[in-house]
């Protein structure tokens, strides 16, 4: 992963969030307060602008700036979670290029940060249910010598599968947990946005 690819990733997330803004809102309305679409949109709008305006000296700088922008623009649960996760990932990548294994380590750091901050376990029906299998798939692919594109594709596939798996779950974290059993039967909006983010990475890295 080089700096330009990192930028492309962020732009790709921005475009995906723009496209899926309404759906994310509707998913959140079903089990939460309906703002996940506008939250992500506000955050990535600003992040895309910030990343376009900066002159980064490392891959990590792109992710750190993205994370910091999310923290200062999003609010809600997803803002600090995605924001600090991306900052944690960015800290791991302080060179102009990163090998797949390094990106895997960065994603692992991001996942750890989400789990530390939010305290969610897999199965709690949160973004963790998409992110954990995605990171796992990425690291496995990279460890077995896979290229960035292949690892990212595996991660995106796993994220989407994990996202779909949240549907039958009963939420135990975040707003959806207030609904108790009524949260069953809905896909978690944060898991969907995580899947969008991983798919954007796969798309950005498709040629790598």
């Amino acid at each position: 992963m080089d700096i330009e690819l990192a930028r492309t990733w962020v732009r790709g997330i921005g475009a995906a969030v723009e496209r899926e803004r309404e759906r994310l809102g509707e998913l959140d309305a079903a089990v939460g307060d309906g703002d996940h679409g506008t939250n992500m949109h506000r955050g990535f709008d600003a992040a895309v602008a910030a990343v376009a305006a900066m002159d980064p000296d490392s891959v990590g700088a792109v992710l750190t700036t993205t994370g910091t922008t999310l923290v200062s623009k999003v609010g809600g649960a997803s803002g600090p979670l995605y924001g600090t996760a991306l900052r944690a990932a960015g800290k791991k990548l302080d060179a102009e290029r990163a090998e797949p294994a390094e990106v895997g380590a960065a994603l692992t750091a991001a996942l750890e940060e989400v789990r530390r901050l939010g305290g969610a376990q897999p199965g709690d029906k949160t973004m963790v249910d998409a992110l954990a299998p995605a990171v796992d798939a990425f690291v496995r692919a990279a460890d077995s010598g896979g290229r960035l594109g292949a690892a990212a594709r595996a991660a995106a596939d796993a994220a989407e599968e994990g996202m779909r798996a949240t549907e039958p779950m009963q939420a135990r974290k975040g707003r959806a947990s207030y609904l108790g059993e009524r949260s069953i039967g809905h896909v978690d909006p944060g898991a969907v946005s995580t899947a969008l983010m991983m798919r954007a990475l796969a798309d950005a890295a498709a040629e790598c």
Partner: peptide, 27 residues
Amino acid sequence: SAGRPGFDLPEDEIEVGVGIHGEPGRR
């Protein structure tokens, strides 16, 4: 931003145990 009610509630039903963020209630 949503532009429509967060949930549909028939004329003879109420949501019990709601919060203050437009989310559905407990039942």
